[in-house]
Design a protein around this nucleic acid. Structure first.
Lengths: 359, 359
DNA sequence: TTGTATGCGTTATCAT
DNA sequence: ATGATAACGCATACAA
């Protein structure tokens, strides 16, 4: 059994190559930067050979130091556990590839100090720009970014006090679309379930848009339920309470409509503000009532994770890939010096109808 | 509306701080590196003030260049879409934090040339080590890593011809555990479903271990089904065929056991080699037969994604967090110069029993 | 066409 | 205790 590498044996530098090729460093540098027209064929050949022999690879750190830009951009992700983030990431990566950037992916894992630590780190590495899917807790921690600092574009969430471009879902349109769908399907009690707002703008926007949209439908009533996903005890408690209220609502309806109404019982619909909320709801209901829970209550969610099809959940699918792609394009313009005032790019969602909201 | 930053206004350097504090760069450097004992209180105060005033932050690129190490390690992930990867990643991040490393996350998205491009990039950035969840297609693309190149540790999969440490699931143990569970539950036809092996060692290992384990149970028979997830048409076709065979198997059993056996019909179990396969199977079966599919056939999967509980799937949960954490620890030892021969670290899986394998 | 010299922002060596 | 000065690996203005 052979032994893997330990201390690296010092890599070849540009000077080594120059010596090996019997020339100066300048020519090597020229070769590396594709200034081929100014190199005699012989020299060029010697350089090529030397590079090959020494397995030379230019040191990007040194390069970046010298030229003042390193083609690095930071991608600060709040929660990679959320499929939404991964999908956005794929758009980001594609755009970076196309535009010649290298994204440094930083995963805050929903921890505020992680976020702080990462923006700190990204600035000390002199990234040329940052794409931020922020925790949004405080503009404080994002100080070095946006506004007077390095160019930034926000994804999904804007953060108060931070002036920067932003791209995300058209929350108002998406929510209206979903609400309308539920009402048209005959649900007249709509419960909007959302995580604690914290400072997360998209949650607030969706909730506001929900109540706004509801005003168009006098036949339906709505309420907001806040669900804390990160605390198992509190979550279980809230879900139990919710379940009890559901029982009451169903009982009330049955009583009002008479016995024959039981077949038309499920008139309340749960509207999950995002995928994680929907998963928590579905898990709870499923555990409590088995696969039959869908007969008790409807469920619709913003975000369209892979399992939604399996569980037959109606969703609003976000244009995640495009969101990521556009974000990088925005950032690219800023890095190139665009000075326009902060722009918002709101992309439309798409309704995916499934069994969970059928009659 | 204010306008975001464009071209950065050149950050302060160590020289700027020195001038501002009326001293030399050396003292600033000393201050930054915590050599506080050799600084007079007055100078120290002046430096502190200057740094504050100029909002100075040391340039890590330059630092790394000078000291020859940058505390960067690469984390090459084959597929972030797989929850397994994200979970491993969390262990990696925690360990990096603890050991003072900064992980550069690179997402190959199952593309071979992406993988090649990233190892190239990581070496030119002179990362001190790499954790690789490889596509495994060819040792060729990983040449600069492991063996004679920069220290590397493999995760989940080893790649032929590449000598390096490796940490992952104890595939043999986990598969045996699962097989035994299925047999004990009374299933006597076990179909092991796995993606094309390509060069992915863990798939091969699990399949081999499956047939190996099966030899202990003469009452049960097994076979391997290869499922190509990336080609929708081929996938649909294979799944249909599978479904037909399932019908045949059920019919055969009913005939043999007589009419009364129909209640005890489901004696065939699907053993998914990993989470993505399980999802594909569940989606198909659910779409074809509705929620009742669980009455037709059992399902067990290695990997325990979030939706498994919702769908009631029995799984083998991998110690993902530990896998990531251990990987970084291994790497750390190599970076520090450990010369031992390549080690393997195989961690045990845990059986999570759910409805999908009940009688 | 090719090479020399200087500097990017830091740290390390050596004086003072 | 403090400060010049020389590298680190590379790119570029300038000279040849």
């Amino acid at each position: 059994m052979s032994t893997p590498t330990a201390g690296a044996p010092r890599r070849a530098t540009i000077s080594d190559v120059a010596r090996e090729a019997g020339t100066g460093k300048t020519s090597i540098s020229r070769y590396l930067n594709g200034e081929l027209s100014v190199l005699s064929p012989q020299l060029r050949a010697r350089i090529e050979a030397a590079i090959e022999r020494l397995d030379y690879q230019p040191n990007q750190m040194a390069r970046g130091l010298k030229r003042g830009r390193n083609r690095l951009i930071g991608m600060l992700v709040a929660d990679l556990t959320n499929p939404y983030s991964v999908e956005v990431l794929q758009g980001v990566e594609a755009a970076c590839h196309a535009l010649g950037y290298m994204p440094l992916i930083c995963h805050a894992a929903n921890e505020v100090d992680m976020e702080r630590r990462f923006v700190q780190l990204l600035t000390t590495y002199r990234v040329e720009g940052v794409i931020v899917n922020a925790l949004g807790v405080s503009e404080e921690t994002l100080r070095p970014v946006g506004g007077g600092g390095i160019p930034a574009v926000l994804v999904d969430r804007s953060v108060e006090g931070l002036v920067a471009d932003m791209v995300g879902l058209d929350n108002e349109g998406a929510t209206a679309l979903a609400t309308r769908h539920l009402v048209e399907r005959g649900f007249d009690q709509l419960w909007f379930v959302v995580q604690p707002f914290a400072h997360i703008s998209s949650r607030r926007q969706r909730e506001a848009a929900f109540h706004q949209a509801l005003r168009q439908y006098p036949q339906a009533s709505g309420r907001t339920v806040v669900l804390e996903l990160d605390d198992a005890d509190e979550l279980a408690q809230t879900l139990s309470a919710l379940d009890a209220e559901l029982d009451a609502a169903i009982a009330a309806r049955e009583q009002r409509d008479g016995a024959l109404a039981s077949s038309a019982a499920p008139r309340v619909a749960l509207f999950a503000a995002n995928g994680p909320v929907a998963l928590a709801l579905a898990r709870h209901l499923n555990q409590r009532h088995g696969a039959n829970w869908q007969k008790r209550v409807a469920l619709l969610s913003i975000d369209d994770p892979e399992w939604a099809e399996l569980a037959g959940i109606t969703t609003i699918r976000q244009p995640t890939y495009d969101i990521g792609y556009r974000a990088v394009e925005f950032l690219h313009e800023r890095i190139d010096g665009a000075q326009a005032s902060a722009r918002d790019c709101l992309l439309p969602g798409e309704l995916i109808e499934r069994a969970s909201t059928a009659r």
